[in-house]
């Protein structure tokens, strides 16, 4: 069985006046048909850049994909020209961003944006597309869709705009949707509404989902598999259940133990990860987590640990991952 999306040793760098930002620095992962894969990590670790690379949306200059492959249904997307990638984006790969206002066109009505997408990608005529648009708006829980299609994005609340984005992402029946922090800007009750909607619709329509987030609760609820990123690399991957039950990288372990949790008795004190994430223009020789790591050994300073299998479908990039397992008991 071949993967829907297969990313191999992707490197996306930004060439800035203060140096080369190695935003994505050799990541590999795959997404199978219909599954939900999460990418989680701290601000600036390269989550968005890795997603934008897949969509061919890296601003050039200053950014450029400097190496690797992105295979979608077997074809490499990296060599494609603008027109070809635009055909895939929106048609085969839908996208949902954090701030829907920036991805919706403010001067076009909701209806026109939906119908144009379908007319362009699916070759529908206006009347059919309009009927479909109303259907999709209803599907994503927008009341009075016949009236809403004549409204502009600024007439809608943040939650409703995000619903429209979901309708836009789904309307061409793509195989994959990439959602970059789709609910970070929303309130908790609205976040729950939107995420449940996305989960139900993608499951029902068999669409695979890459969800980018820094919220460990969201990952736990919605992801089948998880990629944990740190400083431009994936440092741990596995089934959500395995990663949470038995993290095998000190960074993942640190993340999980630094959040206060509603499902457990109140802790006396939180257990943060010391220090801060590194400057991506000045990555050293060894493991980039070294300055913050409680498990470090000599070797960590000179050799970059590779992402290696530590269990069934579970991978970790840490020289000390075995000791981590025993340290946790």
């Amino acid at each position: 069985m071949s993967a829907l999306l297969e990313i191999e040793d992707l490197r996306t760098h930004f060439f800035t006046t203060s140096g080369v930002v190695k935003a994505v620095n050799g990541i590999s992962y795959d997404v199978q048909e219909g599954e939900t894969v999460a990418i989680v990590g701290e601000s600036g670790c390269g989550k968005s850049v890795s997603a934008l690379s897949v969509l061919g949306l890296i601003p050039n200059p200053p950014g450029r994909i400097v190496g690797g492959a992105i295979r979608f249904l077997g074809d490499d997307l990296i060599g494609l020209d603008d027109l070809q990638i635009r055909d895939i984006r929106g048609r085969q790969i839908g996208m949902i961003f954090q701030e829907p206002m920036t991805s919706l066109n403010p001067v076009l009505t909701i209806g026109l944006q939906l119908t144009e997408t379908m007319e362009h990608h699916l070759g529908m005529d206006r009347a059919d597309a309009e009927k479909k648009a109303v259907e999709y708006l209803r599907l994503v829980g927008i009341s009075e869709p016949e009236r809403r299609i004549r409204q502009y994005p600024h007439h809608l609340s943040g939650g409703m705009r995000q619903r429209v984005m979901i309708a836009m992402a789904l309307c061409c029946e793509p195989k994959l949707i990439i959602a970059d922090e789709p609910t970070t800007a929303l309130d908790v009750t609205i976040q729950a509404q939107i995420l449940e909607l996305m989960k139900n619709l993608t499951k029902r329509m068999g669409v695979a989902l890459i969800i980018i987030t820094h919220n460990l609760g969201v990952v736990a609820r919605y992801a089948d598999r998880v990629n944990v990123m740190y400083a431009g690399k994936i440092i741990e991957r596995g089934l959500a259940a395995d990663i949470y039950r038995e993290p095998r990288h000190p960074y993942t372990l640190g993340l999980l133990s630094s959040v206060p949790r509603l499902d457990q008795p109140r802790q006396k004190r939180l257990d943060p990860i010391d220090g801060q994430p590194p400057d991506l223009t000045r990555l050293g020789e060894g493991c980039s987590f070294l300055p913050r790591c409680k498990f470090a050994v000599d070797r960590c300073a000179s050799e970059i640990p590779p992402l290696e299998t530590v269990g069934n479908g579970h991978l970790s990039a840490c020289w000390e991952q075995e000791n981590l397992a025993t340290a946790r008991g």
């Binding site: 729950a192 736990a220 609820r221 919605y222 959500a240 949470y244 959040v259 949790r261 499902d263």
Partner: peptide
């Protein structure tokens, strides 16, 4: 509405 960081619960 708050999901907790535990897949088995969620």
């Amino acid at each position: 509405a708050v999901p907790v960081p535990d897949p088995e619960i969620e």
